[in-house]
Design a protein around this nucleic acid. Structure first.
Length: 563
RNA sequence: UGGGGCGUCGUCAAGCGGUAAGACACAGGACUUUGGUUCCUGCAUUCGGAGGUUCGAAUCCUCCCGCCCCAGCCA
C-alpha cells in the first residue's frame, strides 16, 4: 500500500478486482469485455462503460474484448457494427485481435443447451407467449409449472433439435431453463433461453431459426472468452442469480463474475437507445450523428474530442447510485481540453459594418497574431486590417447598461490585437430604425500596444476585415431538451424538445486564415466559444462551423440575471 | 404488493468506528489587449429519519421513510 497511484481512478469495481488479485483468483488475470448489441449507435452512456472496461484492462495489464451481443436478429445490422467499431476506436481504445460475436458461438451455445437438457435442467415448452406470461405469476403470486416441465430428456432433445431444424412455427415452442416457478425473483421462474425466430441474421443469414436469449448467451460468451469480470449496468442485477445458475450448470473451473454499476444519465438529453432511435426515425434530429445527439458520432461531429469524453467519464466516477449528471460538467471537460489545444481565431457571427473614417481608403496592413496567448509554440498567423470592418452587433450598444465595456456613443474600445477606435456616429435605416453602419476613428499610436499616454481602454472586441473575410455558415447548438430529465417527465418525451436547439447563422464572417480549414478541425473564436469545421457540410472556401460549446460568459450571465 | 438495489453539499462523488476529500455548479476578489484562461477566497457542525451500541458513529445494530429495477419468446 506504500505505492498507491493517486492518479488511477478508483471505484468499488476496482476494489473488487484488487481483492481478487490479492486473493489470487483467476490466476491473477483481469479480462473484461464491452458487449454492445449492434442495433443502434453508441452514446455517451456506452462511453462510460467503454472507459470502465478498457480502462480497467489497461490499468491491470489485462485484456478487454469487443463482443457484439447479436442474439436478436431484428434490428441488428452491419451498419451498426461498423459504426460502433469506428466510435470505440475514435474514443481511443483498441481490442487487437479480440473482436468477437455472440453469433459465432451459436453452435457451441446450442450444444451447451443440449447439455442442459441432458442434465434435466431445461425443457421445451409448448405454451404460447401469453400463456407463459400467465403461468409466470406476479410479484405477489408464485408461478405455475408448465405442463411440459417434466418431459423426458429424449423428448426434449428431439423437440429442441426439430426447433433448430425449422419444423415449428415461430412462437410455438421455446426452450426454458428448469429452475423454480415459485422463486421470489421472477427472472428465475423457468426463464426462456431459446426462441424460434425466422428472421435473417445479418451475419448468419438463415442458417438459424432459433436464437439464444441474452441470459443464456451472455454469460456463456463470457465464459467462452474467459472473462473474469463481467461489468454491466444495474438493471441486470436481478439477472445475476440466473447468470450464476447457468455458470454452475455448465461451466467448471473459474467463472466470470458479474458486477453491476449505475448507468449514466445526462441532464437535458435522453440516453436510452429506444428514445434515440425514435428521434432519428421520426426525423426530429438529422440522423445519429446530429451534433445535438448524445451519441459518440454526434459528439464527434459537434467537435468534442475523445480526450474530453474520457476525462468526463473519469470525472463522473463509477458507483451504484442513480444519477443525473449535469451537462455543464461535460461542457467543462471540452472547454478544459480545447482551451489548451484550440488555436484562437476571429470570426464575427452577427456582423455590423464599421468604417474607420480616418484610415486610408485603400489601406491594408497585416497583423501577426499569436495562435494561442499562453502557448507561443502554436505559432502565429497573419490577419489583414483595412478601413471597413465587421464587428459583433452585440459589441455596440446605443444605450449601454452599467459596466458595459464595449463600444457605445462617446466611447472607445480596443480592436483585439490592433487599434483603439473611437465612436463617431451611426447610420440607421430610416424605415426600420436598425443600425446599419458605425463610423469610428482610430488612433494610429495604439497599434498593437498599450496606449502611449497610458489611457485605459475598457473593452477589447474582435473584428474582421470586411473585404478580406470569408463568409461562413455557423450553427449554434443548444440543449436538445428544455427540461433536465425528459425521460422521467410525464407524457411523450418528444414534447420537451427544445425548438431552439439549432440556430443557423449566416453569412458570418471569419478571418481569411480559415478559408480552407480542415473538416473536423477545432478553433476558439475569441470571445465566443469553440467551433469545429463541420465534417459533413463544410466545403473548401465555404466553411461551415459548429459551435461545440460557448466560452464561459460571466458577463452574459450577469446580464441575464439582471445584475 | 414479493424480490433485488440505492439514499453523504444544487449535481456527481470520496469516506470502510477516530471526529465530512475532490470535481462541476454557484458567490466574491486578483490578474488580463479574449467579460476566456490562470490565481486566491467562500460554499455539508453534518451524512434520508428516529432510536440504540460505543470514550467516540456517515461508518455497527434496530425500526421507519423515500427513490430505482424486475411480471419481453428485448438486451
Amino acid at each position: 500500500m506504500t505505492e498507491e497511484n493517486n492518479n488511477a481512478p478508483s471505484d468499488f469495481i476496482r476494489e473488487i478486482i484488487d481483492d481478487d488479485l490479492r486473493e489470487d483468483r483467476n490466476q491473477g488475470r483481469v479480462a473484461t469485455r464491452f458487449p454492445p448489441e449492434p442495433n443502434g449507435y453508441i452514446h455517451i452512456g456506452h462511453a462510460k462503460s467503454i472507459c470502465l472496461n478498457f480502462g480497467i484492462a489497461a490499468q491491470y495489464k489485462g485484456t478487454c474484448n469487443l463482443r457484439f451481443d447479436d442474439t436478436d436478429p431484428s434490428g441488428e445490422s452491419l451498419e451498426f457494427v461498423e459504426s460502433i467499431i469506428n466510435d470505440i476506436h475514435w474514443l481511443g481504445f483498441d481490442w487487437e485481435d479480440r473482436l468477437f460475436f455472440a453469433s459465432d458461438y451459436f453452435e457451441k451455445l446450442y450444444q451447451l443447451a443440449c447439455e442442459l437438457i441432458k442434465a434435466g435442467k431445461a425443457y421445451v415448452c409448448d405454451l404460447t407467449a401469453d400463456e407463459i406470461r400467465e403461468y409466470r405469476g406476479s410479484f405477489t403470486e408464485p408461478g405455475k409449472e408448465s405442463p411440459n416441465r417434466n418431459r423426458s430428456v429424449d423428448e426434449n432433445l428431439d423437440l429442441f433439435e426439430r426447433m433448430r431444424a425449422g419444423e415449428f412455427e415461430d412462437g410455438t415452442h421455446v426452450l426454458r431453463a428448469r429452475i423454480d416457478m415459485t422463486s421470489p425473483n421472477i427472472v428465475m421462474r423457468d426463464p426462456v433461453i431459446y426462441r424460434i425466430k425466422r428472421a435473417p441474421h445479418y451475419r448468419t443469414g438463415d442458417t438459424w431459426v432459433i436464437y439464444p436469449m441474452y441470459d443464456f448467451a451472455h454469460c456463456l460468451s463470457d465464459a467462452l472468452e474467459s472473462i473474469t469480470h463481467s461489468i454491466c449496468t444495474l438493471e441486470f442485477e436481478n439477472n445475476r442469480p440466473l447468470y450464476d445458475w447457468i455458470m454452475n450448470q455448465l461451466i467448471s473451473g473459474s467463472r466470470p463474475q458479474q458486477i453491476e454499476f449505475a448507468r449514466l444519465n445526462l441532464s437535458y438529453t435522453v440516453i436510452s437507445k429506444r428514445m434515440l432511435i425514435e428521434l432519428v426515425e421520426k426525423g426530429l434530429v438529422n440522423g445519429w450523428d446530429d451534433p445535438r445527439m448524445p451519441t459518440v458520432s454526434g459528439l464527434r461531429r459537434r467537435g468534442y474530442t475523445p480526450e474530453a469524453i474520457r476525462n468526463f467519464c473519469a470525472e463522473i466516477g463509477v458507483a451504484k447510485n442513480d444519477n443525473l449528471i449535469d451537462v455543464a460538467l461535460l461542457e467543462h471537460c471540452v472547454r478544459d481540453d480545447l482551451n489548451e489545444k484550440a488555436p484562437r481565431v476571429m470570426g464575427v457571427l452577427r456582423p455590423i459594418r464599421v468604417v474607420i473614417d480616418n484610415y486610408p481608403e485603400d489601406g491594408v496592413e497585416e497583423f501577426e497574431f499569436a495562435n494561442h496567448p499562453q502557448n507561443p509554440e502554436m505559432g502565429t498567423r497573419k490577419v489583414p486590417f483595412s478601413r471597413v470592418l465587421y464587428i459583433e452587433r452585440d459589441d455596440f450598444q446605443e444605450d449601454p447598461p452599467g459596466k458595459y465595456k464595449r463600444l457605445a456613443p462617446g466611447r472607445e474600445v480596443r480592436l483585439r490585437n490592433a487599434y483603439v477606435i473611437r465612436y463617431e456616429r451611426m447610420v440607421k435605416d430610416e424605415e426600420t430604425g436598425e443600425i446599419t453602419e458605425l463610423h469610428c476613428t482610430y488612433d494610429p499610436e495604439t497599434r498593437n500596444a498599450s496606449s502611449p499616454d497610458g489611457r485605459k481602454v475598457k473593452g477589447v472586441i474582435h473584428w474582421v476585415s470586411a473585404e478580406h473575410s470569408i463568409p461562413a455558415e455557423v450553427r449554434l447548438y443548444d440543449r436538445l431538451f428544455q427540461v433536465a430529465d425528459p425521460a422521467s417527465e410525464s407524457g411523450d418525451f418528444t414534447e420537451y424538445l427544445n425548438p431552439e436547439s439549432l440556430e443557423t447563422l449566416g453569412p458570418c464572417y471569419v478571418e481569411p486564415s480559415l478559408k480552407n480549414a480542415e473538416p473536423g478541425s477545432r478553433y476558439q473564436f475569441e470571445r465566443l466559444g469553440y467551433f469545429s469545421v463541420d465534417s459533413g457540410d463544410s466545403q473548401p472556401e465555404k466553411p461551415v462551423f459548429n459551435r461545440i460549446v460557448a466560452l464561459r460568459d460571466t458577463w452574459g450571465k450577469r446580464a441575464a440575471t439582471g445584475k
